[in-house]
Design a protein around this nucleic acid. Structure first.
Lengths: 112, 112
DNA sequence: ACGACCTGCTAGGTTTTCTTGGCATGTGCA
DNA sequence: TGCACATGCCAAGAAAACCTAGCAGGTCGT
């Protein structure tokens, strides 16, 4: 993204991409859209597993989906990558980290 | 980095940065080097926990350390960020994913 | 000797993530 | 009707990550 992401957004993107399956999903979709079952076959993983990974990728905004009807009437859900772009440097991380919502038990602060 | 990272390298970097504590560590070190105990106090986390995070960061090549002796003879381990830079786009991910060696990621040896 | 600093390690429990297998829905076609 | 294909969801075990508490070592100054 052109504007710097919030800490939480960056964290979600990083956590989402930090998985070999999801990395492959993004890589495969980068070469063209595909529907779930076909993608599962191409990647050699189960459909249930792929769906969970796609769910995470979509909730992180890295892929998007569109439910379409094939010519023979079957419902098929197509996924495609979004045009995301994140720069990972000490500086960009420093900027994002300042807006992290602390998941910290001890220093839990209340908005006064 | 300037040349495209391997899939495994990218995966390790992503997994390492996908943690709020480690994100804060990088952010803090980006403003200047620091030694472990001081960094732990500044971040408000235990030293043991910080050391584990620093270990991961260093093994991913995101920070580096140098053991130095303070003027009064105490050994202090200073950490600093490396000048890393990773671009995260569908294209760069597609390039990296082709060199992934982990469908089920079991590069660890069994404890015995 | 003691307290205040610095470092490093690890066993253990908790929490989160990952993965499988099953079951549900629906369509089209022989 | 039965088969092949598409979708979705969830329970529960397996695996990995996380964090704490406690141990060890060291130097310095009072």
């Amino acid at each position: 993204m052109t504007e710097p992401p919030s800490g939480d957004e960056l964290l979600q993107v990083l956590a989402t991409l930090a998985n070999p399956h999801r990395l492959r999903v993004v890589a495969t979709l980068a070469r063209g859209r595909a529907y779930v079952s076909a993608l599962a076959r191409e990647l050699g993983i189960s459909r249930a597993l792929l769906q969970l990974h796609l769910k995470k990728l979509e909730s992180a905004g890295l892929v998007s989906s569109a439910l379409e009807l094939s010519p023979d009437g079957k419902a098929m859900k197509f996924y495609q990558v979004t045009a995301f772009g994140y720069q990972l440097t000490p500086t960009t991380i420093a900027a994002a980290a300042s807006s992290l919502t602390t998941p910290h038990a001890r220093t839990e602060e209340e908005p006064q």
